[in-house]
């Protein structure tokens, strides 16, 4: 690690980050996590930076988390939201981003339903691009906050056994987590119905299971993913009831297997992915994930702002 220096310009996906890069972000997130517990949780680090949050998909917590992270560090923040359904009527994404860039923007945080949009933006403008989720491709800050939370709770990442449960096919959270966790030496099983398993997912270095009990017995961390209620009931699984019976984590699981930690990227469908009691139990670290998300995003903004040199703070 002594030779190591963080040299990333953007955060498009964890596929581009080395294990050292990931651990470096997590280490920095640790400092920012402490800042958040101060009476005045503010830093002047980014006070000369202008950041635009470009959200083409609905998002509450990710956008809020980024915006708060930016404001805690003193950045000037503007938000641009547009629903994907208006595409084709208005100007092209390329024109939009180049117009915004002409207003002297330093960083862009982008969410879009199309995989590859953050890459596309790096070809359009010079600003730093941070991916806040591109389709089912990557959601790197989510995976970083998940890994930070695991490290915080369990003290390590290498050798950690993680099961990710639910809709593996449509999830950007799962891709970034698999890529990141494998890089830092964790083991990953993905568990869910066959209809929600992409072909060749094993290529990413994971094992596929359809048996929740076996996974919970094995794992240190059980991460459930949100089911998209409207779109998937009846097409990818017969009913929410049947889904919950087979893949939902319930109190009986916590009692039978006393060691694993429950995580969820939110928002939770209570009674589907997790029973109501599990979501509120002390085994679930869902709210810690949210706080850590703020710290991780502060760390990412700081490291990519060009401000970082020498000591982290």
């Amino acid at each position: 690690m002594s030779e190591y220096s963080f040299s990333q310009r953007h955060l498009i996906g964890l596929a581009d980050y080395s294990a050292n890069d990931i651990l470096h972000v997590i280490e920095n997130a640790g400092y920012f996590r402490e800042v958040l517990d101060r009476p005045v949780p503010k830093l002047p680090t980014l006070r000369d930076k202008t950041i635009v949050n470009l959200f083409y998909e609905n998002s509450t917590r990710t956008r809020l988390s980024f915006e708060l992270a930016q404001k805690r560090m003193g950045a000037d923040v503007v938000n641009f939201s547009s629903s994907s359904s208006s595409v084709g009527k208005g100007e092209s994404l390329k024109d939009t981003i180049r117009n915004i860039d002409s207003m002297k923007i330093d960083m862009v945080v982008v969410r879009h339903e199309s995989p590859g949009v953050p890459d596309f933006l790096t070809r359009c403008v010079d600003a730093v691009i941070i991916n806040a989720g591109d389709g089912a491709h990557e959601h790197p800050t989510q995976a970083l906050l998940d890994m930070f939370s695991m490290k915080q709770k369990l003290g390590k990442l290498s050798g950690l056994k993680v099961v990710i449960i639910g809709d593996i096919l449509h999830s950007r959270v799962v891709r970034s987590n698999i890529i990141g966790l494998k890089k830092v030496g964790a083991e990953v099983i993905v568990c869910g119905p066959g209809t929600m398993m992409p072909l060749y997912i094993e290529d990413l270095g994971v094992t596929v299971s359809h048996n929740l009990e076996e996974c919970l017995e094995w794992c240190d961390v059980a991460m459930s993913l949100r089911i998209q209620l409207e779109r998937q009931e009846g097409t990818l699984f017969p009913s929410l009831r049947e889904y919950h019976n087979r893949f939902g984590i319930r109190m009986e699981h916590l009692e039978k297997y006393p060691d694993f930690v429950v995580m969820h990227p939110g928002p939770v469908n209570r009674g589907v992915e997790l029973s109501d009691e599990v979501a509120d139990s002390d085994r679930a670290i869902i709210l810690d994930q949210v706080t850590n998300g703020l710290a991780v995003r502060m760390a990412v903004l700081y490291l990519l702002s060009g401000r970082a040199s020498g000591q982290p703070l």
Binding site: P115, G116, G135, A136, E138, P198, L199, Y200, I201, D203
Partner: peptide, 13 residues
């Protein structure tokens, strides 16, 4: 194409 690359990239295949 649906296959290894689409799974990696999260693009519908």
């Amino acid at each position: 194409n649906e296959g290894r690359v689409s799974t990696r990239l999260g693009l519908a295949g």
